[in-house]
């Protein structure tokens, strides 16, 4: 079993990407911290040969969802004032905040599969194992989620989007 420090060094950036895909920077820091604290607690009991990245990014996804739910329960939705809209949105890039909004609106299974496949870069069989669903279901949910994002009018149209990697 590797020293936990090595796990933090190796997986810190991908855990951040997962947290940040659904959350703003401050909330993402909370979710990142909660993820590694929970992981540190459970780490000695992790079965040998486990996929550490799959395990950690799934924790990260769940912690990000917890933070979103906690935010939703707060009487004042956001203490931070809304950002002013940019005068001219860049033609070539989708804003990160818009993407996070769109991801947040996906049905839970699609959201989980899109995040774990396309942000955490997990293979479908690992996602299936982590979520307790079949590999086919993981693949289908990721594809459906991505299709829903492509149809989302707040995201820039992509007539020539590549299909997701198998």
């Amino acid at each position: 079993m590797r020293p936990f420090e090595d796990v933090v060094t190796d997986e810190g950036p991908v855990v951040w990407r997962v947290c940040r895909s659904l959350l703003g920077p401050a909330d993402a820091e909370d979710a990142w911290s909660e993820t590694f604290l929970a992981a540190l607690r459970a780490y000695p009991g992790l079965p040998p040969g486990s996929n550490v990245r799959g395990w950690l990014t799934t924790i990260a996804y769940r912690k990000a969802i917890d933070v979103l739910r906690a935010d939703a329960r707060r009487p004042v939705p956001h203490a931070v004032p809304p950002e002013p809209p940019p005068a001219l949105p860049p033609a070539s890039a989708t804003d990160h905040g818009e993407l996070a909004d769109a991801l947040r609106r996906l049905p839970p299974k699609q959201q989980a599969c899109v995040v774990l496949r396309h942000l955490a870069d997990l293979p479908y069989d690992t996602i299936a194992g982590q979520l307790g669903i079949s590999t086919a279901a993981a693949r289908r949910n990721a594809a459906d989620g991505l299709a829903a994002l492509r149809r989302n009018p707040t995201l820039r149209p992509h007539p020539d989007l590549e299909p997701a990697r198998p």
Partner: peptide
Amino acid sequence: MTDLLEPTRSPDARLTAAQARRL
């Protein structure tokens, strides 16, 4: 990875060294 999700890998969304140290 599709370019639709590219913003999540943009520099402003990436974990900086200072942030990593703080976390």
